[in-house]
């Protein structure tokens, strides 16, 4: 792949490798709690320490996510978020930030309704670098993965503890950008990560691929981040950040005045975990 987008993600990982540290990947749901606050928050994330921004595309039925992320999706949808507006958010973010990679994470149905080729085209033009579509396993690569790769949009795949050595090559075959290792068998925001198990899994995956391996699910504290940063190329925190957003809403779900400040302070604390060189 040769497009600017793809090299943006590759460049970021190469740069971090030279610095000798892991990437800090922050997840928030696009449009949570509303478009305006969300844009302000996403714009503030790189300065707070996010190396890569993962944005959730809201969906009513996020089967692989826990209550925190499901509620964030429903908050965004209640305030009028759509896939089209998620792309608008990325476009506006890109006006000020040409460097921070943006990954869209979500479920297939909203993309399917938008139109796969239209989504790939509009995503690239908005400045999206890659996508994670939870319910598109390798068996469904013809749906979106292959056209995305052909167009120059990274298709980042999840590998899980149930992905054994026999299946791993199938999962990695069309993966690009990085491999997202799901550290637990479970949904987002529930069980806590076990560093020893993750270490073994990352080693196993690296035997099959040269791509960077980022780890997510169950990473909640600066200490968790530091632990995983010492064994993986990237650390993803989602539910813990999304919970901070929820903590900064009034009883009617409106953002409190300090929401962006409080959430970015938390992100900054978490980001300290990747500052120590490996």
């Amino acid at each position: 792949m040769s497009t600017e987008q793809c090299s943006r993600l590759d460049r970021r990982f190469e740069h971090l490798k030279r610095e000798g540290r892991a990437a800090f990947v922050t997840f928030v749901t696009a449009g949570d709690p509303d478009m305006e606050t969300s844009l302000e928050l996403v714009r503030a994330l790189p300065k707070a320490g996010a190396d890569i921004i993962e944005l959730g595309m809201p969906f009513t039925d996020p089967m692989a996510d826990g209550p925190a992320i499901q509620r964030s999706s429903l908050r965004a949808l209640a305030n009028g978020m759509t896939l089209k507006r998620t792309l608008d958010l990325v476009r506006q973010f890109r006006e000020d930030d040409p460097d921070t990679p943006v990954i869209l994470m979500g479920y297939y149905n909203p993309i399917y309704q938008y139109g796969v080729s239209e989504f790939i085209r509009d995503g690239l033009s908005a400045g999206v670098d890659g996508t994670i579509v939870v319910d598109l396993p390798p068996e469904a690569d013809h749906e979106m993965c292959v056209p995305a790769l052909e167009a120059g949009l990274h298709f980042i795949r999840l590998a899980t503890p149930t992905t054994d050595d026999v299946r791993l090559p199938t999962v990695l075959k069309n993966t690009s950008g990085f491999v997202y290792y799901v550290s637990i068998t479970g949904i987002t925001g529930t069980a806590s990560v076990n560093a020893a198990q993750v270490d073994a899994a990352v080693t196993r995956i690296k035997r099959h691929t040269d791509l960077p391996v980022a780890v997510g699910f169950g990473i909640k504290t600066p200490k968790d981040v530091a632990n995983i940063a010492s064994i993986a190329d990237g650390v993803v925190v989602g539910s813990a950040i999304v919970n901070r957003i929820q903590d900064n809403l009034d009883p009617d779900g409106k953002p409190l005045a300090d929401l962006v400040k409080n959430v970015t302070e938390f992100v900054h604390e978490l980001a300290q975990g990747v500052q120590t060189p490996k």
Binding site: P137, E139, T160, T163, D164
Partner: peptide, 12 residues
């Protein structure tokens, strides 16, 4: 039809 599930469930 098809199999549109998360990777964790795919082996199952």
């Amino acid at each position: 039809g098809g199999r549109f599930v998360a990777e964790t469930l795919m082996p199952l």
